[in-house]
Simulated scan of single mutants.
Amino acid sequence: MSTMQNVMMNLFEHAKRSMDDADMKEVANLTDSAADEARRLAAICESLGCLISSDGDNSPMAGSFRDSDEVSGLLWALGHSFDTIAAMVEVGDEATFHLNELRMKKASEGQA
Rank of each mutant, 00 (worst) to 15 (best):
P60L: 12
T31Q: 09
D55Y: 10
D21T: 09
E70K: 04
A35P: 00
R40T: 14
E70C: 01
K16S: 02
E26N: 05
L41A: 14
L99Q: 11
S18I: 03
A35F: 08
L48Q: 15
G49A: 14
S68R: 10
H80I: 03
K105Y: 00
S18T: 04
A62Y: 08
L74V: 06
L51W: 07
D83L: 03
H80A: 06
G73P: 00
L74T: 03
G73A: 02
D21W: 01
S33I: 12
I85Q: 05
D20L: 02
D21R: 06
V91G: 01
C50W: 15
G92E: 10
D57G: 10
G92N: 11
F65G: 10
G92W: 10
D57Y: 13
N6A: 07
K16W: 01
S68M: 10
M24C: 08
R39M: 13
I44C: 15
M19K: 01
A28T: 07
D23Q: 08
A15W: 00
T31N: 08
D83W: 05
F97E: 14
S81P: 04
E37Q: 13
E101P: 00
L102D: 01
A95E: 09
R66A: 11
G73K: 02
A42M: 15
R40K: 15
I44K: 15
L51R: 14
E46K: 15
D57Q: 14
L78F: 03
E90D: 09
V89F: 01
F97C: 13
P60I: 11
I85A: 07
F82A: 08
S33L: 11
A43H: 14
T3S: 02
D69T: 07
M61Q: 13
E46G: 15
E26F: 05
N100A: 09
S18Y: 01
G79M: 09
S54I: 12
N100L: 11
M61R: 13
A35W: 04
R103H: 05
M4N: 06
T31A: 09
H98P: 07
V7G: 00
L74C: 07
S68V: 12
M104R: 06
K106M: 01
G79W: 03
E37T: 11
L78Y: 03
A77L: 11
S81I: 03
L75Q: 04
D69Y: 07
A35G: 07
H80Q: 06
W76D: 11
M61W: 10
T31C: 06
D55A: 12
A15E: 00
A38F: 06
L74D: 02
S47A: 15
L30E: 00
E70A: 05
G49E: 13
D57H: 13
T3H: 00
S53Q: 14
E94N: 12
L11D: 05
E46W: 15
A42N: 15
P60D: 13
N10T: 10
S81F: 07
M8Q: 06
A62V: 10
N29K: 06
F12P: 00
